Amino acid sequence: MGVRTWIDSWPVFRQLTGTDPLGRGAAAKSGATGRLRPRVASADRVVKSVCPYCAVGCGQNVYVQDEKVTQIEGDPDSPISRGRLCPKGSASLQLTTGEARRHEVLYRRPHSTDWERLDLDTAMDMIADRVIAARREGWQWEVDETRTRRTLGFASLGGATLDNEENYLIKKLFTALGAIQIENQARI
């Protein structure tokens, strides 16, 4: 590399002699930086979404390539978050593609020390049977001669990994089942 080539590649020289006297644009950009491409440039499509972690509802851009989620970033068009995400929202790619994510139902029988895999239909039937039994055992038609029509057999505590629509449907379900102890993590 000659002296002239070295001087021309020096950012301070480019800043003083070029059209970028403050050194915030082309003067500060190296050749290697100019060749870089965003990792989302190769995405087939961008899907708008909402962060699943809390009730704020920050907008997300989900980048999909070959029908797989490759990146999740804040949506700059969102009036709520304006492209910013908290650390948890920024890591939501792990929620969809993380190696620790389970794709089967695991069940541990009472007094057992081992987990066993169940198919989804069996697990759903077990849950439905338990909900019906708990509702039946805890049902109160009236308390102190006041008609209540409620159950104290179960309660609901919604989590922050559900979006607003899912939490709304869960609230409607538990209300229809007669539960009165319905709460959400976002409100606590």
Score class of each variant (00 low, 15 high):
residue 45 R to T: 03
residue 56 V to H: 03
residue 24 R to D: 14
residue 167 N to E: 01
residue 95 L to H: 09
residue 179 A to C: 14
residue 170 I to D: 10
residue 147 R to Q: 12
residue 178 G to W: 04
residue 103 H to Q: 08
residue 76 P to C: 02
residue 40 V to L: 07
residue 166 E to W: 07
residue 66 D to V: 08
residue 113 T to S: 06
residue 59 G to H: 10
residue 30 S to E: 00
residue 121 D to K: 02
residue 183 E to P: 09
residue 98 G to R: 07
residue 49 S to A: 03
residue 184 N to W: 02
residue 109 R to Y: 01
residue 112 S to K: 14
residue 104 E to T: 15
residue 18 G to P: 05
residue 188 I to E: 02
residue 163 D to M: 03
residue 154 F to G: 12
residue 61 N to D: 14
residue 151 T to W: 07
residue 29 K to C: 10
residue 51 C to Q: 11
residue 21 P to R: 13
residue 84 R to K: 15
residue 26 A to W: 00
residue 167 N to C: 01
residue 155 A to W: 07
residue 162 L to D: 03
residue 147 R to Y: 08
residue 116 E to R: 02
residue 144 D to Y: 07
residue 90 S to M: 08
residue 16 L to D: 02
residue 133 A to D: 12
residue 16 L to C: 13
residue 123 A to E: 13
residue 20 D to E: 06
residue 114 D to L: 04
residue 44 D to N: 04
residue 92 S to W: 05
residue 158 G to I: 01
residue 159 G to E: 11
residue 128 A to N: 13
residue 42 S to W: 05
residue 78 S to V: 04
residue 54 C to Y: 13
residue 148 T to N: 04
residue 96 T to P: 00
residue 10 W to P: 04
residue 91 A to L: 01
residue 93 L to S: 13
residue 92 S to M: 15
residue 8 D to I: 00
residue 130 R to C: 07
residue 26 A to L: 06
residue 148 T to K: 14
residue 165 E to I: 06
residue 178 G to D: 00
residue 119 D to H: 10
residue 111 H to S: 08
residue 117 R to D: 07
residue 152 L to H: 07
residue 178 G to F: 03
residue 54 C to F: 12
residue 42 S to L: 05
residue 93 L to V: 13
residue 68 K to R: 15
residue 154 F to T: 00
residue 186 A to N: 09
residue 122 T to L: 04
residue 139 W to N: 11
residue 29 K to A: 14
residue 57 G to D: 12
residue 59 G to D: 07
residue 34 G to C: 00
residue 58 C to P: 14
residue 58 C to N: 15
residue 92 S to Y: 08
residue 72 I to M: 10
residue 119 D to L: 02
residue 112 S to R: 15
residue 91 A to V: 00
residue 35 R to N: 01
residue 120 L to S: 11
residue 88 K to P: 01
residue 74 G to A: 13
residue 62 V to M: 11
residue 17 T to H: 09
residue 67 E to S: 01
residue 70 T to G: 05
residue 164 N to S: 15
residue 113 T to C: 09
residue 125 D to F: 05
residue 156 S to C: 12
residue 71 Q to M: 02
residue 51 C to K: 04
residue 41 A to Q: 10
residue 116 E to H: 01
residue 41 A to K: 12
residue 132 I to H: 15
residue 134 A to Q: 13
residue 132 I to E: 10
residue 16 L to N: 14
residue 65 Q to A: 08
residue 171 K to V: 10
residue 167 N to S: 03
residue 96 T to A: 14
residue 146 T to H: 15
residue 53 Y to G: 07
residue 178 G to S: 12
residue 50 V to P: 07
residue 154 F to K: 10
residue 80 I to E: 06
residue 15 Q to F: 05
residue 160 A to P: 13
residue 120 L to E: 12
residue 42 S to F: 08
residue 48 K to D: 00
residue 148 T to G: 12
residue 164 N to F: 14
residue 30 S to G: 02
residue 160 A to H: 01
residue 63 Y to W: 11
residue 165 E to D: 03
residue 97 T to S: 14
residue 145 E to D: 10
residue 40 V to R: 13
residue 7 I to M: 09
residue 20 D to M: 05
residue 96 T to L: 14
residue 47 V to N: 06
